[in-house]
Amino acid sequence: MNAPLISQTWTDHVTGRRGFLVVDRLVRGVSSGGLRMREGCTLDEVAGLARGMTMKEALHYNAEGRYIPLGGAKGGIDCDPQDPEAYGILVRYLRAMRPHIENFWTTGEDLGLTQDIVDKAAAEAGLLSSIQAVYPLLDDEVAARQRLADAFAVEVDGIGLDELVGGCGVAESVLAALDRAGVAHEGTRVSVQGLGTMGGATARFLSRAGLRIVAVADVKGTVANPKGLDVEALLGARDAYGAVDRGVLRPGDLELPGDAWLSAEAEVLVPAAVSYAVDASNEGRITARWIVEAANMPVLADAEALLARRGVTVLPDVVVNSGTNAWWWWTLFGDIGADADEAFAYTRRSMRALIDQMLARAEADGSTPRAAAHAIVADRLPVIAERFGWYR
């Protein structure tokens, strides 16, 4: 694996907090990858996420599409997003990174940050937009920016389309895996870690597809019910950080420890919160048949090897949660319009095709789905480089 193109550590002169930027690769001179904020964020973590973004972009390469994948990058800030100093640190980080964002790094919301907060801080930092580096690649910048703004204004059942589309992609990944295995949707049990943007939307789409959400975890602990939770009630009782007001729980809903989601009796586990949630010390508690990585890097490599020996299939983050990033670009470049039904349909088709291709490759190679995804990326990166050139 090659070293990243850029690896940078920033120190806030006010608080001493550190931030990071890693640009793994440029395509047409531009890279794409969100900005996360969490206590304990490290340069190594951001580097891994940037490499993952290169893979996500390559996986969505379609020679016939208007959206042409970018390179991969990622930003990170070592700070609790609920810290009173967090917003000021974010503004100063973006101000320091302004030359990169103006020229070659497009970014947006990730763990711990919402797009509204990123947009507000970016404006305060003197930026036109957090994705302005891609504007020179657009055929009609004014129309493209308006289309994306219109898409961000779309709501479905009171939730923004931008918050829902990633969960739609995760849910479709689950459904594609079940279909390939001949397992009925109705009644299949699911446990979800995290009820924020990604986890909440995933739970909603899976519940509406007939699956039974039997456990969800947030910062307060795990809520469980083997007969199924009222997903809509839980979603309606979330705060800005995805924590559920326990006052909406029904008789029969159980309050359990925070890690109880891991050992829930379910066919599918969806880690949709933090990285490194499943390791060699806790993987033995898992009885599920599938782990579907809605979060970035939630299953450590040693745990994944142990799970594979037990017949547990891990669907990797680089495929599963790639829908949000792709939706931004599908919309901005004009493959789809600012319409929820069109966005969901396009996302479902694209994600199902990727999952099917990955699982077929894994079966043919006798490998894991992650290894198969990496193999597909290895095939596509030279094709992208041949068309657009190498920027290393």
Rank of each mutant, 00 (worst) to 15 (best):
M297D: 07
R36C: 07
V223S: 13
G88S: 01
E124M: 09
P226M: 05
Y67F: 13
M53N: 01
S275P: 00
V223D: 12
D302I: 05
G323T: 11
V214M: 05
S129P: 07
V192M: 09
A294L: 02
A203H: 06
L206Q: 01
G199N: 06
G196H: 07
V30P: 01
A3N: 10
R98V: 03
R310K: 06
E363W: 04
A273P: 09
R309F: 10
R212Q: 11
N296G: 02
V190Q: 07
G108W: 08
A176R: 02
A153F: 03
L332D: 00
R309N: 12
R180T: 04
V183L: 15
A121E: 04
F104Y: 11
Q193R: 15
A96S: 10
L90P: 05
V320D: 11
I89E: 03
D302L: 05
T106D: 11
A295C: 07
S207M: 06
A273H: 08
I213S: 00
A372L: 15
L26M: 06
G167A: 00
Y67R: 06
V268K: 05
N282V: 05
N225Q: 02
R18G: 01
V312N: 03
L49G: 02
M55F: 12
V142L: 14
A122G: 15
W105N: 05
V192L: 08
D157K: 11
V318E: 10
G76C: 12
V91M: 07
D218F: 12
A224G: 03
N282F: 08
T114C: 02
W329Q: 09
A181Y: 00
G196C: 07
T188M: 03
A233V: 02
A171I: 03
G334S: 04
A240G: 13
S32A: 13
A372H: 12
A125F: 09
R392Q: 13
D179G: 14
W105C: 04
L70Y: 15
D253V: 08
E57T: 04
G366Q: 03
G160C: 10
L175G: 00
A133G: 08
E267S: 06
L381N: 13
R145Y: 05
P81A: 01
G34S: 06
R92C: 04
D356I: 15
R289A: 12
A338N: 11
V292H: 05
A237V: 11
N225D: 13
G323Y: 11
L5Y: 07
F205R: 01
P99M: 01
P4D: 00
W261V: 02
R28M: 05
F205C: 00
V23A: 09
T202A: 15
G167D: 00
